[in-house]
Amino acid sequence: MPTGRSTSTTQAAQPPNESGAALFQSRQGHLAMLAFSALVSLSFSFGHIIAKDIAPAALNTVRFALAALVLFGLARILHVPVRPVFNRFWRFGLIGGLMAVYFITMFEALRMTTAVSTAAVFTLTPLMAAGCGRLIAGQRSGRWTLIALTIGAVGAVWVIFRADIGALMRFELGRGEALFAIGALGHALVPAVSRKLASDVKPLQTSLGSVLGALIVTGIYGFGDLIKTDFVAMRPAVWMVVAYLAIVTTAGTFFLVQYAAQRLPASKVMAYTYLVPSWVVLWDFVFYGTTPPALLLAGIATTLLALTMLLRGEAV
């Protein structure tokens, strides 16, 4: 009897330890995506600076090429083998291709519609990711998570439209919005596809493979613009922004998404895109002293509430 009781006690003690380890990993995933949202938001401000200096297709091809070199060098420094990247490379080509579709459709949509409209469409991404995670990776999103995602979407839309109900009511779906919805779906598929196809490799390897896949797709699409671009004549500010986009918001954020995708459900990974508009408002205040209206702060508070609910949901 004593032996059986001891064994039972030991077995009963295991789940909390396993649960604690899982909670620790999920928190790491949340921190990665918090950094992701902050870094991506800066790219909007920096990208606006060089919008007229280089064609979008050429810009994206160069950023992916530089990002691939950075990730390859980092893999060599950290002694992470790159051979697994070329083992069943089609899976990384698929992941990178999905990201390339997102970037290509975003820039094409911006030629047809406004940044506000594309950002509004992008708020659908976390809910799309929840559906993709369910269909592809068998991830179930509970009622609490879906409520939190919905609240986050409402808050993000409120920030995107600058707390202007009139602007929100004038929102119309056109060709640009429909095109970018395809790109948003591609972005939403990335966490679930990564979890399904690349769980056997390190995040750095997945990031390198995905960037190479994105480079191939974007290079084919943007070849014409690429050969027409006079890179020698570009001003230094353009190269500085391209370097930031390549190293930070491509190599860095690809790694953060892959890292988080192995620790969080797809819906929670994508939920951090809700924070991007709020970060942009913050950077406008820091860089330009632009004070947001009080009603806008309500939207920011709503997105923070949604993320708090998601964190609380880890234990539910």
Rank of each mutant, 00 (worst) to 15 (best):
R170M: 14
I216F: 09
G174H: 12
P15L: 04
G142N: 05
D164E: 11
T206D: 01
L66C: 12
T7H: 13
T250M: 07
V242D: 06
A306L: 02
N60C: 09
A251D: 01
A120E: 00
P277H: 14
Y244W: 09
A21M: 11
D164H: 10
L146Q: 04
R27I: 15
L98K: 06
E177Q: 15
F24E: 04
D164Q: 07
A55N: 13
L215G: 00
G174L: 13
G224Y: 11
F107G: 03
P2I: 10
Q262T: 09
S117C: 05
A243K: 06
A22P: 08
R143F: 15
A130V: 08
V101P: 04
A21V: 12
H79T: 13
H187G: 13
W279E: 04
A233F: 07
H48S: 15
V269L: 08
T273Q: 15
V157W: 07
V280G: 11
T308N: 14
K268T: 14
G186A: 08
A178E: 03
L110E: 08
V257F: 12
L124Q: 05
L311G: 06
V40P: 12
G133A: 05
I182P: 11
F64H: 01
L264M: 09
G29D: 02
A306V: 02
F92G: 11
L124Y: 05
I49Q: 14
I77C: 05
F89L: 09
T273M: 14
S43A: 15
A315V: 10
V248Y: 08
K268N: 14
L304N: 04
Y244L: 03
S194T: 10
P81I: 04
V70P: 00
V201F: 01
V193I: 13
T303W: 07
A294I: 14
L124M: 14
I147W: 07
A315K: 14
P265Y: 07
S267P: 09
E177V: 10
L189I: 04
L78E: 13
I216G: 03
R111C: 00
G142T: 03
Y288I: 00
G176A: 11
V159N: 06
V280M: 14
